[in-house]
Design a protein around this nucleic acid. Structure first.
Lengths: 373, 373
DNA sequence: TTGTGCCTTGAATCTCGCA
DNA sequence: CTGCGAGATTCAAGGCACA
């Protein structure tokens, strides 16, 4: 398989006089972009290597092995090498973008600050940074940091003043129950049947979910537009473009990914007419941790909580746990223990005493929920 | 009011031989940080200016004043000046941080990519990027972009390998109802009574909510730690530090903000006693060798230990090692080997069978710990 | 057919103290 | 500074077997 990486055109690719639509071009994305006509592409979506620098092996608490992204294409000798690579492909991208065009680049904290800085250096103008909040990220198995639960996309036009870009404001609003679409998008990672497999293993180590590309393309392209993806990989961009009646151009070096993406896109049935209508995301009841009320100052650490009969009391601590006679834990745990019960809903069990009235702490939770909509 | 901006010490501040705790120092934050002792500060929280047009408040690296507001910089000059300024203050910050220290920097897409890139260039190691997801952001009135509904914080230690930083994992988990705290934080913006007013107008244009600093300080500092804020502004960092029993040092140029913050912090009532306690890390608890239980007679040599599935068993020996099918070693080593796992926590893996109930040997350890207390 | 419980898996910069 | 060994550490979904 190693050899496939070396499959490249022997020479610089011949310049294209017209756009090779709905194809995957094999080769180095910088050379390929340089061979395309200038100002010819409506939108670029790019998922470049993140340059993650993983050290050893990682195991889950149950001792199962975490399969890492250790592909050769993600390895760079230094930040400087990564920066040079980034500057080169973003410069090539700028040339082929129409003046009305925009570019999306996705990354994580490992690379997105390099990318964002270089985008601005080149002259791109950031329209938004979009946070993809994953509903089901991988946890932090060692308890050393916050769970890395999001990735970031930068959405830019060609420069300050290039203001005729496409933004389908109303479609986005409709997609979001008639409220302006925000810069944070809550979407699951790509798993289940959508995740492409080869011989029972991941077909690509970093396949993106179609829902993400769906929103990207629906927001920033029109039907018939040309979308170019310089790091085509498993071809999510192409699959969603075809589904939405957009034209795609995929650039990819490796045989195995080209064949994976080709098969995948061939299976895609384009949506037509009404089928293009959108199912709004269901809004689940937000989970409000008790600690959130403490952070927000709605309940001060040191406050005493009581049960309705005032037989039991507990004191709130700074981290949102409570303490009753040296027994510490969550509102639910302590509520259960003081009663000798197997479980307890702390939200309805514990009360605040305000001017001789007992108010269940659940009232405060409802206030917070109300703020959220 | 314009004049207040020019209030600066005439000369470079005199070096401090010890930390000026719980004070606001007036002047240029770079000069002030350079006057503080090296490796003396536990955590830095910084909310630097976002504005790339600088408004004459910033200085070139040689400290020459960047002249008037009406200079027509093109954006490249502006970015370069901003970068130089950022590099300078982040370098000064690196010097005064303890080797166990960490830094937080908050920003928006206008500046955070410059900041992140320079942090990495200096050698800081990103631990997380945290997204503050605002529950009540300002809408995008013109409908030309997505609602800009978040800001980003970078949390870094001094470099790869500086791994003894403070992260109160268990307290964060408790604050989030026993689920790992994620990298996206949902918190409201600062408004209502919390928002400081001067003559009916905002006292500071970018006052951060106390809830944000609460989570920052609770996660990455311990009681009594020193927190420095080089862009003190309205003093949110100081207010929350005082409330949580941490020491603060505020750096600020402008008279009006110093007086605003001083009054504010004077009103803060520190939390005391139990209220300040947080869930401790398991690693911080006393180490009890398994052999200790044998010595104390809590487990007799010859006792048989089993795993929860009763697939594996082992016999306790007089020296606190155990033996399973002629394989001898610690509870952890044998636990790992019988499972063919890379590692094992013997305390939770091995159980005693008492009257048909399986009791993890960890409960015995807890008894010993309780006695020590 | 539907519900339950078990198993698998995901762009991850993932330990620490002591000899 | 390195090596060794104790011992701490996971959330949401989807698939599948089985009742």
């Amino acid at each position: 398989m190693k050899t496939s990486k070396k499959v490249k055109p022997a020479a610089t690719p011949k310049p294209y006089t017209e756009l090779p639509l709905n194809q995957i071009l094999q080769g180095n994305c910088i050379e390929l972009m340089n061979s395309l006509p200038e100002k010819s592409v409506d939108v670029i979506f790019a998922d470049p290597p993140y340059n993650m620098q993983l050290k050893g092996e990682l195991h889950r608490p149950d001792n199962s092995h975490v399969s890492a992204v250790n592909d050769e294409w993600d390895k760079f000798d230094s930040l400087a090498v990564y920066d040079d690579f980034t500057r080169e492909w973003l410069t090539a991208a700028h040339r082929i973008l129409k003046d009305t065009g925009t570019i999306w680049v996705i990354g994580s904290y490992h690379n997105i600050y390099r990318v964002g800085s270089i985008l601005q250096d080149i002259g791109y103008w950031v329209l938004n940074d979009i946070v993809w909040r994953k509903t089901n990220p991988m946890p932090n198995f060692r308890g050393t940091r916050f769970t890395n639960a999001h990735e970031t996309m930068l959405w830019c036009n060609k420069g300050e003043g290039y203001n005729k870009y496409t933004f389908n404001y109303d479609a986005m609003k409709a997609l979001n129950e008639d409220i302006q679409m925000r810069s944070d998008w809550v979407l699951p990672i790509c798993s289940g049947k959508e995740r492409l497999k080869v011989n029972g293993h991941k077909g690509h180590s970093t396949q993106k979910p179609e829902s993400l590309l769906y929103r990207v393309l629906l927001s920033s392209t029109n039907k018939g537009d040309v979308v170019l993806d310089p790091f085509f990989g498993s071809g999510t961009t192409g699959a969603v473009a075809k589904k939405l009646g957009r034209n795609y151009i995929g650039l990819e070096m490796e045989d195995k990914y080209i064949s994976l993406a080709t098969d995948r896109i061939n299976m895609v049935e384009p949506l037509t007419g009404d089928a293009l209508e959108i199912t709004p995301a269901k809004r689940a009841q937000a989970r409000i941790p008790f600690g959130n009320l403490v952070e927000r100052g709605m309940i001060k650490p040191g406050t005493v909580l009581v049960d309705p009969s005032k037989k039991h009391s507990a004191k709130v601590r700074a981290d949102g746990t409570i303490i009753s006679k040296d027994d510490k834990g969550s509102i639910h745990q302590i509520g259960a223990r003081v009663q000798g019960a197997p479980s307890c809903n702390g939200w309805t069990f514990w009360h605040l005493e305000v001017q001789n009235n007992l108010i269940p702490i659940d009232t405060l939770r409802q206030q917070v929920r109300a703020e959220l909509h």
